[in-house]
């Protein structure tokens, strides 16, 4: 388990974003930015994922999907809110169908600002998330270690 931060898997969910941030997340996977060189793989299965990337705000349609996905992920896990929409609701904050940022429904560990975020910023955010993941892992091990030994 100690090597989890060497090869974290991410799951990406598109909230009610404008796509601007989504395509930048996708751009991270492609040759110019290529986050696979950090061992990061994009997966569609929440059970496989360590990092939850969310773009776009939360609306009344996807709130349950986001909660479900978060709950299905196994500990330790971190949540990265990508883009201003995911951070606070952004320009759509006052829309009738938007509840606000991701932190309205699940705890967020890293906020990546920008509209649209730049791929470099996303990578930075993920790298920060790795630090938090490591802390959470150590914490979890301490708790479980005490019980096991």
């Amino acid at each position: 388990m100690a090597n989890i931060t060497k090869s974290p898997w991410i799951i990406h969910y598109d909230g009610s974003s404008c796509n601007g941030c989504d395509i930048e997340v996708l751009a991270c996977l492609t040759p110019l930015y290529d986050i696979e060189r950090f061992g990061i793989i994009n997966t569609g299965n929440p059970k496989h994922a360590d990092i939850f990337l969310i773009t776009g705000g939360i609306n009344y349609q996807n709130v349950d999907i986001v909660k479900n996905t978060y709950e299905q992920m196994v500990d330790p896990k971190v949540v990265v809110a990508v883009g201003i929409c995911a951070t606070s609701g952004g320009v759509f904050r006052e829309c009738y169908n938007i509840m606000g940022g991701v932190n309205e429904v699940i705890p967020v560990d890293v906020y990546v600002p920008g509209c649209a975020v730049r791929p470099e910023a996303i990578i930075d955010g993920v790298v920060q998330a790795l630090g938090i993941l490591e802390e959470k892992r150590a914490q979890l091990e301490k708790e479980q270690g005490g019980a096991k030994k």
């Binding site: 609306n59 996807n62 759509f92 829309c95 009738y96 169908n97």
Partner: peptide, 24 residues
């Protein structure tokens, strides 16, 4: 699933400002 209702925002943003929303 991603309905935001941004057409309604014209009531809250000046027309010159609203172009930022239109772009998004």
């Amino acid at each position: 699933y991603i309905h935001r209702g941004l057409e309604k925002l014209v009531e809250k943003r000046e027309y010159t400002d609203y172009i930022r929303i239109a772009e998004r």
